[in-house]
Design a protein around this nucleic acid. Structure first.
Length: 477
RNA sequence: CGAGGUGUGGCGCAGCUGGUAGCGCGCUUGCUUUGGGAGCAAGAUGUCGCAGGUUCGAAUCCUGUCACCUCGACCA
C-alpha cells in the first residue's frame, strides 16, 4: 500500500540504496562507528537484536547436542601455518600481535580470523577413541579480519559470530552434520528473521579455504543483491591430517576424524535491515524485535490516559515484549521515532479512545490502523504480531520469486544480469574459467549451486560445453 | 590498494582571496501545547580531525598524517 514518507532524514531506498542502508543503521541507533578502523559499536538496539539472534540459534544448537566452549583469541603463527590452503586464504587479512608489553614476542600471534586451527589443535589432544566421538563444540566470540573496505554489519574488521566445530567418526556423519547445520540456519532465518533463503553448495572458487565442500544460504536483499547469510563447511579429514587428530577406531586402527565448521555472524543484522526495512527506517520482524509493541499515549496530561496505558503494559507484558513511551515529546515525534527503530506494532491511546474503551493498533509494515477493544488486547495483539511476521516473510519471498530469472544462452544471460537486479539461474560447465569470465564481464559471482536443481539446458551458458549443474548467479554484498 | 570527495558545538552545514567563528536542528530551564517530528522566552555547548611549517596574526595558505564517504580492485 502506498504510504507517505514521514521521515525526511533517511535517504529514500529507491534513490540511493547504499546511503539508505547507512542512514537506517545510524538513525535506528543500531550501531555507530568507533575510533578503531573498520570497527563498529553495537548500540543497545543492535546488541539486543544480536542477543535475540544468539538465543534463537544457541537453543537450536543445544537441542541438537552441541556444547559451548571458549577458545583463546590468539593463534600462534606456527599453529595457523599447519593447514596450507587455510593459511593462504586468510593470510592477507590477519592482524598480528608482535609485542607483549615492551618485549618483542618470540613468535607472533594472530588475532583469530576464525578458529579452525585452535579447535583442531585441541581436538588432537582430547580425542583418543571412537568412544570420544563425536565432539560437537560451538563458541560465541568475535573475530578480526583486516578488510580493506568496511560497512556496518556487512563487513567489519571485528565482528561477532558463532563458530561451530565438530569432529566425527565417519565421513557420512560429518557430511550429515554439515547439512543439518545448514538446515538449522535456513529454518532460523525463515522462522525468526522472516528471511527466505536459497540453500546450495558453493563452487570451488567460492568455497572456504581448506574445506572440501562449502554450503551456503543466500538471501536476496531488497535491491536484488545477494547476501551470504551463513555457511557450513565439510572438511573431510584435511585438517585432521594437518593437525594430527587421530583416534583408535572400532577395529583398533588409528584413523583421522572427519570434521565440520559452520558460522553465522552479525551480518545477519545487515540482512534483516536490507530485506525488511523501508524509507521510514528499520522494520524488525516481531520474533526478533527486542520491543514488539510500543504504547504511545496521546494527550497524556489528560486524566486517566497514562494510567490506562500502564494497565495495557501490565496486562500485555505476559504475552509480548511491550513498552510505553511516556516522555514529553509530541505524539507525532514518537510515532516517527519508534517507526525508525523498527518496532513492529504501535498502540495509540488518547482521551477519545479511553471514552470508547479502545486503543488504536498501527502496523509498522503497512501503516494500517485498527481500533482494538481494551478487553480483547491480550488476544488480538499476539495474533497481530504473528500476522506481521508471516506477512514480512511472504513479502520477502514474493520479491525473491519475482526477481529470480532464468537464462539459457549468453545473450539473454548478459541482458538479464546487467539490467535486472536479482538472481539469474543458468547452467554451468563446472569450469572456473567461466566463473572468471562472468565476474570480469558483469561483476557477478556464482552465489551457489542450489540443492533444488533444474535442468534448464544441456550446455553451459558461458562456454557452450556440456553443463554439469545449475548455478544461481548474482551480484553480492 | 587505485581514483575522487569530506573533516568546523551532539547532528547537518556556512565561513576558506589570512585579522581570533556563525546558522539550522538538537540540548537545558520555564510557561502554553499534545490524534503524524509544537510555540514563545531565557540559557549552555568550539583547543575549526591531528602534527609540523609560513606569518605580527592561520578554520582559512603549505607539507605530512589520520579518519570517514563514493566508485573500482580485493573479499572462504
Amino acid at each position: 500500500m502506498a504510504k507517505e514518507k514521514y521521515v525526511e532524514s533517511i535517504t529514500s531506498r529507491d534513490v540511493d540504496f547504499a546511503q539508505w542502508y547507512t542512514d537506517v543503521v545510524r538513525k535506528a541507533e543500531m550501531a555507530d562507528y568507533s575510533s578503531v578502523r573498520g570497527c563498529m559499536i553495537l548500540r543497545p538496539l543492535g546488541c539486543a537484536v544480536w542477543e535475540n539472534i544468539q538465543k534463537g540459534l544457541d537453543s537450536r544448537f543445544k537441542a541438537l547436542g552441541h556444547e559451548n566452549v571458549c577458545m583463546p583469541m590468539f593463534i600462534p603463527e606456527s599453529l595457523l601455518d599447519k593447514e596450507a590452503e587455510h593459511v593462504e586464504g586468510f593470510a592477507p587479512e590477519v592482524a598480528w600481535v608482535t609485542m607483549g608489553g615492551t618485549e618483542q614476542l618470540q613468535e607472533r600471534l594472530a588475532v583469530r580470523p576464525t578458529s579452525e586451527a585452535l579447535f583442531s589443535d585441541h581436538y588432537a589432544k582430547i580425542v583418543q577413541s571412537y568412544r570420544d566421538l563425536p565432539k560437537l563444540y560451538n563458541q560465541w566470540v568475535s573475530v578480526v579480519r583486516w578488510e580493506k573496505t568496511t560497512r556496518p554489519f556487512l563487513r567489519t574488521t571485528e565482528f561477532w559470530w558463532q563458530e561451530g566445530h565438530t569432529v566425527h567418526e565417519t565421513a557420512a556423519e560429518a557430511q550429515q552434520e554439515t547439512l543439518r547445520m545448514l538446515d538449522t540456519y535456513a529454518e532460523f532465518c525463515k522462522t525468526e528473521l522472516a528471511i527466505p533463503v536459497v540453500k546450495g553448495r558453493k563452487t570451488d572458487k567460492e568455497k572456504f579455504a581448506g574445506a572440501e565442500a562449502t554450503y551456503t544460504i543466500e538471501a536476496m536483499m531488497h535491491d536484488g543483491k545477494s547476501l551470504q547469510a551463513a555457511t557450513s563447511h565439510y572438511f573431510g579429514d584435511g585438517f585432521a591430517r594437518a593437525f594430527g587428530i587421530q583416534f583408535s577406531n572400532r577395529e583398533n586402527k588409528l584413523q583421522y576424524v572427519y570434521q565440520t565448521s559452520w558460522g553465522a555472524s552479525t551480518r545477519l543484522i545487515g540482512a534483516l535491515i536490507m530485506v525488511h526495512s523501508d524509507d521510514n527506517g528499520l522494520l524488525l520482524p516481531p520474533h526478533i524485535a527486542p520491543t514488539q509493541v510500543m504504547v504511545v499515549p496521546v494527550a497524556q496530561h489528560k486524566p486517566g490516559v497514562l494510567e490506562a496505558c500502564q494497565q495495557i503494559v501490565d496486562k500485555l507484558s505476559l504475552v509480548c515484549r511491550i513498552k510505553m513511551d511516556a516522555s514529553d515529546k509530541m505524539p507525532g515525534w514518537k510515532f516517527s521515532e519508534h517507526e525508525m527503530h523498527g518496532i513492529p506494532l504501535r498502540l495509540e491511546l488518547g482521551p477519545k479512545d479511553l471514552a470508547n474503551g479502545q486503543a488504536i493498533a498501527v502496523r509498522r509494515d503497512t501503516g494500517e490502523k485498527q481500533p482494538v477493544s481494551l478487553d480483547n488486547l491480550a488476544d488480538v495483539i499476539p495474533d497481530l504480531l504473528e500476522q506481521i511476521q508471516r506477512d514480512l516473510y511472504d513479502r520477502a519471498w514474493q520479491l525473491m520469486q519475482e526477481r529470480t530469472y532464468t537464462a539459457t544462452d549468453w545473450d539473454s544471460f548478459s541482458a538479464t544480469i546487467q539490467e535486472k537486479p536479482g538472481f539469474v539461474k543458468a547452467m554451468w560447465c563446472g569450469e572456473q574459467a567461466c566463473e572468471d569470465k562472468i565476474k570480469e564481464a558483469f561483476a557477478a559471482t556464482a552465489r551457489c549451486m542450489p540443492f533444488e536443481q533444474e535442468h534448464l539446458a544441456d550446455t553451459c551458458v558461458c562456454c557452450g560445453k556440456p553443463a554439469k549443474s545449475m548455478v544461481i548467479w548474482g551480484k553480492a554484498y
